[in-house]
Design a protein around this nucleic acid. Structure first.
Lengths: 162, 162
DNA sequence: GGCAATTAGATTGCACACAAAGTATTTATT
DNA sequence: AATAAATACTTTGTGTGCAATCTAATTGCC
């Protein structure tokens, strides 16, 4: 039997099924993170931004967006909320006033200590060994890169200037 | 070296990294589905509901929620939108007026034809073989079940009645 | 220098996703 | 039968996510 088998022998077609598995696993992950992150007054996307900042402080919004695959329409209000609760500061870059540089406050830096135990807890909730965890992450990362290419390819060409 | 290795030798701890991989893959999948589903005037969660209905018509909201792992707060407005564009009907069940039964309209049934080619397109966008696709889906489904158990366990006990 | 194109964010509008609280109906208990 | 508890859905409020559009600043080009 060839590799690309009939698409309708499963209750839901397999490609759809994989997407649904990813989709619902993402929601399930969020449900596990939520009670933990509630204690830090963070949502999961906010936590991702904090992870970026704990790695490197004083970052333009654009870099955060590139790292997390999120656009400014998502990040602008999210960053304003993180500023409102005092974890970071938003300041225009002197050398390029278009850029908004994000820097941690003392409270934001201090939060890293409280967050340090989170990955272990999540790892335990996954019920997977170290190597399985890594393998799955690598497969998904590859898949995401492939999907990004596919989405790019199907996007309308950038209006070639004559 | 034991299985549960140090948690801080990666740029981001591994468990967080797996969650991020799932999270961003879900968003990437959505970006691939979007232009395809736009032609059917569906969002991805709406498409999931239609998949359920194409399998079994005349379903209570609760069953849809159980199948898709979505709660009524999400489904109520979503189903109203699908009703507004004429793909389904919402009717109280005669035998139990609490239940809202969802049934396909002719337009909703007809849509299945247009949707038939979607899984192949998505499968191609994944760039994975049939067996890899299935293996990944199974691993993720297992992971989601494990995460559901972990979330359940960490939820406050349902207030034992004396 | 002057003007077009590009770039970085902000804003608006729409659709999830879920917690919490509310309403109506049904079932269980006494 | 009356009332309590459970069930099924609705409503409200908060926080994403993204498309589309907008503004302001910078860069390119002549």
């Amino acid at each position: 039997m060839p590799k690309s088998a009939p698409a309708f022998d499963a209750p839901l077609p397999l490609a759809d099924n994989l997407c649904f598995a990813v989709y619902s696993t993402a929601l399930a992950f969020n449900a596990v993170y939520k009670p933990i992150l509630d204690r830090l007054h963070l949502t999961y996307p906010q936590y991702l931004v904090m992870l970026v900042l704990w790695q490197q402080d004083d970052v333009p919004v654009k870099d955060i967006g590139r790292l997390l695959h999120l656009d400014s329409g998502t990040l602008t209000p999210l960053l304003k909320r993180l500023e409102a609760i005092g974890y970071l500061a938003r300041r225009r870059h002197a050398a390029d006033e278009r850029q908004l540089r994000i820097t941690l406050t003392d409270a934001g830096r201090a939060l890293a200590d409280q967050a340090r135990s989170i990955p272990q807890g999540i790892g335990a909730a996954c019920g997977l060994g170290w190597d399985e965890l890594g393998k799955l992450r690598d497969q998904l990362t590859q898949l995401r890169e492939q999907l990004d290419r596919a989405a790019e390819a199907s996007r309308p060409a950038p209006a070639a200037v004559r």
